[in-house]
Simulated scan of single mutants.
Amino acid sequence: MQKMMGKYVVYLSMLGLLVCLACSEDKKIGEVETLTLDYELPQGKSPADDRIVEIYEKYGSYILYEYTDKDFYYDSDINFGRTYVYQLLDPQCVENMVDLLDEIWFDLYPEKFHQQTLPYHVFLASDLFYEDLFGEIVREPICTGAFSAVVSVSTEMLQELTSEMKLELKNSLQIKLWKFWQSYNYIELPDEFYEVSNYVGVANTDESSPNYARARGFVDGYNQTTLWYTSIDDWNAGTVSQKSDLYTFIECMLTRSSEEWEDDLAWPLVKKKYDILRNWIQKQYGFDIQVVGNLFCE
């Protein structure tokens, strides 16, 4: 009996050793695969290479102008529900692109905030588009994923950027970035914001009504042709959602100048929510979000 038990112990020990070896091999294989996501810097073909290396050393974020389909399509969130087609940016135009990103992104936020929020990859492209359900080509200057962002500006545009063009690119980029940061909890915003407005029922456009949208503390979204608050976000509950309200406020703060805020801020609840967000962001993250809104507006 003891002899039989001894055999079982040996067999079980050998089985355990084989399992450990298998797990060890699997781990090594997994580690090798993840290493393929790393890149050598400088990439070596652009006058902006030193600046790109400096960004990586500060924040651990790769600014890439040479990459493959495997790199680009690795982040499935970027291509969720659509397949983007991209065109690589000429390395000689990369410095112009980095100059632009300095203006509309990097120079707007403190170093600590970048360390918290910069994507792992920032792919630079000269074209970025997809085909919609109707077969139409849709071009986008910016798209974001779980750990990547793509910024696309044509060579021609980079050589003749006007303040109006920069304003449009800044607005598109900042809206995408903040939605990304909020969706993935990269940043925290105050619950106090939600305590100001009543979210039950649909606000209206009659300024004499106590149910008027601005009287309830709501504002119009960026570049919308219809008032977002005239529709119900949650048809089952019949309410305006807190999420839509916060997104809309942030969009407006990113895209409106101080002057463009004046009419809305004449309404007490709008001003209260504006002040809550602006002061919170200043205190928590060390920058004034209205500076982002003012850029190229004045």
Rank of each mutant, 00 (worst) to 15 (best):
Q116E: 06
S152M: 05
A215V: 04
Q182D: 09
G217M: 10
E103V: 04
N171E: 15
Y130P: 06
S172I: 04
N198W: 04
T155Y: 07
Y120A: 10
K176A: 12
E95I: 05
F123T: 00
M157T: 13
G145Y: 11
E111N: 05
N204E: 00
D191T: 10
D127M: 01
G201K: 08
E131K: 15
S183M: 14
S209G: 10
Q115R: 07
I104W: 08
L128Y: 01
H121N: 10
S148D: 03
L101G: 13
E188T: 12
Y184V: 02
K179Q: 14
P119I: 01
D102M: 01
L133Y: 09
V98P: 05
S197I: 11
E195H: 13
E164M: 14
E195M: 14
L161K: 02
Y212S: 04
S208R: 12
N185K: 04
I137G: 00
I175A: 11
G201Q: 09
L124Q: 07
A215Y: 04
E207P: 10
L133K: 14
N185T: 02
D107I: 05
F106M: 08
M97D: 01
E95W: 06
N185D: 07
E160T: 05
P210R: 01
Y186R: 03
V151A: 11
W178R: 04
Y130W: 09
F180N: 11
L100D: 00
L161F: 02
G135V: 12
L177H: 14
P110N: 01
T155R: 15
F113Q: 02
F123K: 03
V196D: 14
L169Y: 11
S163W: 08
L108G: 15
F134S: 13
Y199T: 09
L108Q: 15
D206K: 14
P190N: 07
A215D: 02
R139N: 08
E156M: 08
L169N: 10
S208N: 15
G135T: 09
V196G: 13
E136S: 11
S152P: 07
C143D: 06
E103C: 03
G145E: 10
E111A: 08
E164T: 15
E140T: 00
F106C: 02
Y109V: 02
Y130C: 04
D107Q: 12
E103I: 03
W178N: 08
L124H: 03
A146M: 14
T155Q: 14
N204A: 00
F106E: 02
L108H: 15
Y186V: 01
E136C: 07
I137N: 03
E168A: 15
Y194F: 14
V94P: 10
T205R: 09
D102R: 07
N171L: 07
L100I: 00
Y109C: 05
